[in-house]
Design a binder for these strands. Structure first.
Lengths: 200, 200
DNA sequence: TTAATAAGTTAACACCGTTAGCAAATATAA
DNA sequence: TTATATTTGCTAACGGTGTTAACTTATTAA
């Protein structure tokens, strides 16, 4: 007599119902507008029912974040399989990573906290140009000095800034037990590699 | 008779009062907990007064974001002055950028939308390790293949991931008019440079 | 002194996450 | 089968949030 099974199945149905409703809201209106109340409305249950399945709103978001990391891991593994040489693997994995991010913006933004209001109006902020112009000019000077007239300065500027921002934000969210000195070694090494890529 | 001047001064006082109160709240409790009501309470004016100076809450955050970019621009410019060689400048600017980010976490998080709840619990997410292990192993294989036993794989893995994440997030928030093909060229070029740095 | 303008207030609207307390349906034990 | 216990779900509230309409009180100009 699968009574207990039926109950568990029912409970699971509600759980997936919550996640499906939540996800639908996330992809239509962005995860900023996700609300417990609207989920309750969508699944046609009262609000406290949701708290029987998830401790709080954050737990629901974390669920999607985990899903995102799993999907990304899968994507990277599949990309890796397509070639044998490790450096070639690093290349196809990079493209796969990139494609994943833009084909699953909602996941990626959730995983790394992008897509915040203050972050969306970055385009209209003139103050950014003041900063980037310093970067651009230095890159240009470096290219001139190293005699590399082949390289696209705009391309290199983006790479430079991205390396910096990437290192900082990964380090900020990761909070690993590494020392500051070690963290800075990562930075120095990466910049060193970048500067070498300017020379050729 | 500087009556109009006095009034303007008074108005300006309120405006800076709002910003000071807001900033105090940001650095003490994080910018997530910034609230119009609490600002009003702090400056001892009623709530609608704030809306005479800022269109909405977002506008206040944007103000700080702008400030952050200005401060960063200043920091980078000053760092640049300390050395003459462009590549050396790129190095000191990188360190300056890094230091700015960690000495002004509130600014940096505001500027790039980090510090979100879902992003803070990244450490406790086992699913991340599943992904990073793929990256780590490939890096290790690449180092073995290129015969580079000097390089620290952990260091290189961080650099690799950071380049990817940095490129993606800068691209996501920047939303420049560049074509997808051009954006991907930036990616390819950066990864190429990284792979070269593995060889030596 | 009176009319017009500016400054600042109260009070509400429409949301939000979260939880205490209660009712009804179900399952277990006598 | 009846009585007790437990799960399940509900209503209603608490304490927040951003934002705005409507009103009152100063201040200025005529």
């Amino acid at each position: 007599m699968g009574i207990v099974e039926r109950k568990m199945r029912h409970k699971e149905e509600i759980r997936t119902g919550i996640l499906e409703a939540a996800w639908h809201m996330v992809i239509t209106d962005g995860w900023q507008s996700l609300s417990i109340r609207k989920i309750a409305d969508a699944i046609e249950y009262s609000i406290p029912v949701i708290y029987n399945h998830f401790e709080n709103k954050e737990a629901i978001l974390l669920e999607f974040s985990k899903e995102g990391y799993q999907k990304l891991a899968l994507t990277l593994n599949e990309a890796k399989k397509t070639v044998v040489s490790p450096t070639a693997q690093l290349e196809v994995m990079a493209v796969a990573y990139w494609d994943f991010a833009f084909e699953n913006k909602e996941y990626y933004q959730l995983m790394f906290g992008l897509g915040i209001p203050a972050c969306e109006m970055v385009n209209q902020v003139a103050e950014i140009k003041e900063m980037t112009s310093t970067l651009v000019s230095t890159i240009q000077e470096a290219l001139v000095q190293t005699g590399n007239r082949e390289a696209d300065y705009f391309l290199k500027y983006h790479a430079y800034w991205s390396i910096l921002h990437g290192l900082v934000s990964i380090q900020m969210i990761e909070n690993s037990g590494k020392t500051d000195a070690f963290k800075k070694m990562i930075l120095k090494d990466a910049i060193n590699g970048f500067c070498k890529s300017l020379v050729l």
